[in-house]
Amino acid sequence: MTGSTTPTRRLDEVELPAAGTWRIDPGHAEVAFVGRHFMLTKVRGRFTGVDGAVEIAENPADSKVSVTIDMASVHSGDQARDDHLRSADFFDVAAHPTATFVSGDVRWGGSRGSMTGELTIKGVTRPVTLAVDYVGYAQDPWDNHRAVFSARGRLNREDWGLTWNMPLARGGLLVSKEIDLELEVELVYAG
């Protein structure tokens, strides 16, 4: 950053990132999900191919987020499960290689807020709301300015046409419909 611009500012006694464009650092971004197997065991997965930007506005409630996720980058720790997730039963990455999130309504107070946006998976667009926390600011050894955010939410995967499942002999389903989202994102100031 040059001139008198600083990477952070104080707003209502809270340090927040300066207004401007902040790019997602794909190497330090995680879009993770948690579902249940047999309706009991937590199964975690994540997407490593994440790209996008945040336009932080002077009024944080006017900020905008745009994210693209490479659906083939899914990793859950099991190759057979990952291949199944990439198949037409779930993400159908051959026909729908990316998912997107574009923010709409942002509500902000202090270092926390909520964001409702349009999540598109397999060509289906539905709203999703995320609780967002501003974790803090750091300057890396190469003089890049970084803002770190964490977010979480819950969705019903069937709302996006992700309906594959198997009934269990004693009742219930093999894979939970409710999926928890967990996001950790480092943003780099771009101007």
Rank of each mutant, 00 (worst) to 15 (best):
G171S: 06
A72C: 08
G3S: 09
D159S: 10
Y134G: 04
H145I: 00
A147M: 08
Q139P: 02
R44N: 11
L119H: 05
K177S: 10
D83M: 07
V34A: 07
M1T: 01
T125N: 12
D89H: 14
E178L: 12
I56V: 13
R86P: 08
S76P: 00
A29L: 03
V34T: 13
A88F: 13
K64Q: 15
R157E: 04
F101C: 05
R44D: 09
H145S: 01
Q139Y: 10
L181P: 07
T125Y: 11
G35D: 12
P26I: 02
Q79K: 14
T163S: 15
E55H: 12
L16S: 04
E30P: 02
F91D: 00
V106Q: 03
T5W: 09
R157S: 05
E182H: 11
Y134N: 06
R46S: 11
Q139L: 10
P141A: 14
G110M: 09
K64V: 14
G20D: 00
V175I: 14
T125D: 09
H28C: 08
A72Q: 11
V148F: 07
E58M: 05
S66Q: 09
T21M: 10
G123S: 14
A95E: 15
G20N: 02
A147I: 01
V34F: 10
F91C: 01
E184R: 15
V188N: 00
L85I: 07
R126A: 03
A80L: 09
Q139F: 09
Q79D: 15
D83N: 10
T100A: 06
T6S: 10
F149D: 04
M1K: 07
N165A: 11
R46T: 05
M115C: 14
W164K: 07
A138I: 10
A99T: 06
H145W: 00
H84T: 09
A72M: 04
L130C: 11
V185L: 06
D89M: 03
A190Y: 01
E55R: 12
H75Y: 10
R154V: 14
G172Y: 13
T125L: 05
F90V: 03
V67F: 05
R23T: 07
D25E: 13
V106S: 05
T163W: 12
E13I: 07
D82P: 02
G77F: 01
W164S: 01
P60N: 08
W160V: 08
T6Q: 15
E13V: 10
G35P: 04
A95R: 14
P60E: 13
R23S: 12
S150W: 08
V93K: 02
V43Q: 12
P26V: 01
D12I: 12
D82F: 04
R152K: 15
A19D: 08
H145K: 01
